[in-house]
Design a protein around this nucleic acid. Structure first.
Length: 470
RNA sequence: GGCCCGUUCGUCUAGUGGUUAGGACUCAGGAUUUUCAUUCCUGCAACAGGGGUUCGAUUCCCCUACGGGCUACCA
């Protein structure tokens, strides 16, 4: 039973916040687990004491929660598993499959400079006596795996058959001189003990996989299945990183993007549903996901497309839901207004926003009267003194409206204009500017309805006053 | 240096031994909105190059070029 259970994990190292590439790897693991009815785990790879920071661990966990990629508790920390690594190391020692290496970093570095790209095996065959002597001298040592001749082969679920000849490998270090395990060792021990069935990770690990399989074999363990994912790249086709100014997941949360929109875009980077559909909820993604449709080619991060997808998600959300989300960010938003009015505002703002922050900033004129006006817009909308008298006339008309709704307002204004010698634009544009402080935004009739008679009066008078004084 | 991986419009991608090489984002133009956005329509735009195999290759094979990864006491 447990043999066939699907278990996957996302294993970031806490040397920085959760970045987009990491999020995509996490997503694919999560989707795979959902699709296969398996479990998804989170493991923090913090064996590098120098670079690992608990603040990053916390941030990664926060980002994962925000994304909604829930994992099976508890979180596994490699730093807490020292005894397990020792256990497996002893097995290697017992079987003479690893050895102490007393070479200094400088020596190894020099060897590289001299053109030896592989470890020459200096310490591979030290005698018991030599080892004892060096230990007594207090020379620090690392531990290297002993790799025999032969070939290692595996079938990657994305990239297909992969063969590595052992003579292209060297006896790499599995335990550092401070006693901590290196990645290639700890990952094997942990994936085995966590009973991971499928290792799904970035293709920067494709070349490491043979080394890990060698360790599995040395320990007499059965390796899991492997699936490597193509990288997410910057515009220069190099792995996307902070160097590109690429923000972490946290930044998208801060800007009020919807996690399912971000995830939707991330999913399309290196995977496709085999048809032309592009907008998916997380559930829809998990119903469709398959490693078979994963691309082998790296994909360049395109913020434009993210914006479009985020906008599509925004339009799909109910305004009630958006209201709750906005209030979660800013509890004061729209305070004092009826919920029905706020919903109305969100209905209008939805098609022009891609994030909650944008919703908040673009809807501001509904709550705060404009005080400053852009000169260019003023020149366009308010060309001469006639504008003021037109507006005053229009205002009078508005005051007589019995049924204060957008349709009524629209017909009144149009009727008013029809009796005059100027075009509708001559009245709509100054109204827009006076009421919204900008020439862009929702229909002016909707704005008027939402603002209410009193506020409309106030704002128009303020504009009349402001512009007459110039 | 060695090994591994990749290469379809600018970008994400579909695709097949014979297609007008399809869709999406972006961009340009148009319709709706006398604004902006949304929506709709139209347009621009790609099989890296060279050899094979074949009646026929974007598709299969080889080479080259280019890009990426690994080659760390990082992961």
């Amino acid at each position: 039973m447990s043999k066939n259970t699907i278990k996957v994990r996302f294993a970031p190292s806490p040397t920085g916040e959760l970045h987009l590439g990491g999020a995509r790897t996490a997503l694919f693991n999560w989707l795979f687990a959902q699709r296969q009815n398996g479990s998804f785990f989170l493991r923090i790879e913090d064996t590098d004491k120098e670079r690992s920071k608990t603040q990053y661990t916390e941030q990664i966990i926060d980002s994962m929660k925000w994304l909604g990629l829930n994992w099976k508790t508890p979180v596994v920390y490699q730093s807490g598993r020292t005894e397990r690594y020792k256990h497996y190391l002893n097995i290697l020692f017992k079987n003479d499959l690893c050895y102490r290496c007393f070479c200094s970093k400088d020596e190894l570095q020099q060897s590289k400079v001299d053109g030896h790209f592989l470890y020459p095996g200096t310490c591979r065959n030290l005698s018991e006596h030599e080892i004892k002597t060096k230990l007594n001298q207090g020379i620090t040592f690392t531990i290297r795996i002993k790799i025999g001749s032969g070939k290692t082969m595996f079938n990657d679920l994305v990239y297909g058959k992969n063969v590595t000849d052992h003579n292209e490998l060297d006896d790499f270090i599995i335990i550092r001189s401070d006693g901590t395990p290196t990645y290639n060792f700890s990952v094997v021990v942990d994936d085995y003990e966590m009973e991971i069935s499928h290792v799904i990770r970035g293709d920067d690990h494709l070349s490491n996989t043979s080394k890990q399989i060698i360790i599995y074999r040395a320990l007499g363990l059965k390796p899991p299945q492997f699936a490597h994912l193509p990288m997410i790249l910057g515009p220069d086709k190099k792995r996307l990183s902070k160097r590109h100014g690429a923000p972490g997941v946290q930044s998208f949360a801060d800007q009020g993007y919807f996690p399912d929109g971000l995830l939707n875009y991330l999913a399309l980077l290196g995977w496709n549903p085999k048809n032309d559909d592009e907008i998916f909820s997380l559930t829809q993604l998990s119903n469709k996901f398959s490693l078979k449709q994963v691309q082998k080619k790296g994909a360049i991060w395109d913020e434009q497309k993210l914006h479009w997808i985020s906008g599509q998600h925004m339009m799909q959300k109910s305004s009630k839901f958006i209201l709750d989300q906005v209030r979660a960010i800013n509890p004061e938003w729209g305070k004092g207004s009826d919920i029905a009015v706020l919903i109305r505002i969100l209905d209008l703002m939805k098609p022009r926003c891609k994030s909650l922050k944008e919703v908040i900033s673009l809807s501001e004129p509904f709550f705060i009267s404009p005080v400053v006006f852009n000169d260019g817009e003023k020149a366009r909308a308010w060309p001469n003194q006639k504008t003021a008298s037109n507006l005053i006339g229009c205002l009078k008309k508005l005051e007589q409206i019995a049924f204060w709704n957008a349709q009524q307002i629209e017909s009144e204004i149009k009727q008013y204009v029809s009796t005059k010698s100027f075009s509708l634009g001559k009245i709509i544009m100054p109204l827009r500017l006076a009421l919204f402080g900008s020439l862009n935004g929702p229909s002016v009739y909707d704005i008027i309805e939402i603002l209410g008679k009193k506020e409309v009066n106030k704002r128009i008078n303020f504009a009349l006053e402001t512009f007459s004084n110039i």
